Simulated scan of single mutants.
Amino acid sequence: MQYHRVYIKGACYFFTLVTEKRRPIFKDEKQINILRESFKKVMKKYPFTINAIVVLPDHLHCIWTLPEGDHDYSTRWRLIKTGFSKNCDKTNINQPNQARIRKKQQAIWQHRFWEHMIRNEQDYHEHIDYIHYNPVKHGYTNKAVDWPYSSLHQYIKDGIIPKNWGVSGIEIPNEIGKE
């Protein structure tokens, strides 16, 4: 069975991207800043809205809304991943295998990414909660607010989510964002 992506113009999508062999590439501020710059550069040429995001050491989750009349999230992800790969610190990154060498690829990202088109308002809010709770789920912190690389901080600043949201023990649907 071949996987087919869903492309709907102007839609809202949840994404999961994982590093190759789950290496903790995003464990320092320098790498996070390179990823931010890659996003900014792509967003200038191919605009989209980041509704929510969290970056963990070995993966990231985010929700994007694409512009009306545009469905090309794959090009955006390719450019973001390429921009990061060209500029990141490769000190702790293993050498690529022979297949990747032949294709002139680096061993930074898993080849594919996972996407899910947001179906409705409830689906949207469940995925935002999943994103913001993910650092607690993975044991990086006991409170979501303590994780620095999350859009949760903007949600708190905007008064959308209370500061004490995401304390360890909150039930989050485990079927969302299969990692």
Rank of each mutant, 00 (worst) to 15 (best):
E171A: 12
I160W: 09
W77C: 00
P148N: 05
K41W: 07
Y133L: 09
H132R: 09
Y13R: 03
S150G: 07
D70W: 03
Y133A: 10
K86V: 04
K104H: 13
H127Y: 08
K104V: 09
K103G: 09
K104Y: 09
F26D: 02
W64F: 05
C62P: 04
G10R: 05
Q31F: 06
E126P: 01
K45C: 07
E37D: 14
E126Q: 14
R22C: 10
Q31D: 01
I50W: 02
F39T: 03
G69C: 10
E126R: 09
D129N: 15
K104N: 13
M1C: 05
N94F: 13
P57I: 07
F26N: 00
Q98C: 09
G177L: 05
R100A: 04
F26G: 00
Y124G: 06
I160H: 10
W77Y: 00
H4E: 10
I176Q: 04
K178L: 13
K157G: 03
R100G: 04
F48T: 04
R5C: 06
V42E: 01
H132A: 03
I34V: 11
E37L: 03
T65F: 11
I101M: 12
Y124T: 07
K157S: 09
T91V: 08
I93M: 04
E37I: 04
F26I: 00
P67L: 09
I161C: 09
Y124F: 15
S38V: 02
A52K: 01
Y3P: 01
R76I: 03
T141A: 14
I63M: 09
F84W: 05
I176M: 08
R36G: 01
A52P: 06
I63A: 06
